[in-house]
Design a protein around this nucleic acid. Structure first.
Length: 104
DNA sequence: AAAATGACGGTGT
DNA sequence: TACACCGCCATTT
């Protein structure tokens, strides 16, 4: 049906490769609005499609993990990412190695 | 139609 | 690095 901004965001999120992460801003940009990072975050929260839509692979521009509505929250999110092979630096993701803006 | 909400981003201190 | 403030956008009520 109507492809809303939200649908695009989910489509893109589903394309994020394992072991890599994308920022809300990057997704928003791919969805057509480079400034809609906030809106993207909202959809992640509304998203209950967990493994279907790897919202856990979406982190802040600084690699910092912001919310997570599933499992134990950020704790689970980080566990999953590390398990996926994402490099962590303290409480942040090593964007230098895990940035996946090339997946398309 | 207007106001409120939210898992952001960038900049300044 | 951490915290505070402002600006941006899409969706819902």
């Amino acid at each position: 049906m109507n492809k809303s901004f939200r649908d695009k965001v989910y489509e893109i999120t589903k394309q994020i490769p394992k072991g890599k992460v994308a920022t809300y801003g990057q997704i928003a940009a791919m969805a057509g609005s480079p400034r809609a990072a906030r809106a993207v975050g909202m959809f992640m929260k509304l998203n209950t499609d967990a493994p279907n839509t790897p919202c856990h692979r979406v982190v802040a521009a600084d690699g910092k993990l912001t919310g997570y509505s599933a499992g134990a929250g950020l704790k689970t999110k980080r566990e999953i990412l590390e398990k996926e092979g994402v490099s962590f630096v303290g409480d942040r993701v090593n964007m230098k190695s895990s940035a996946s803006i090339f997946f398309q």
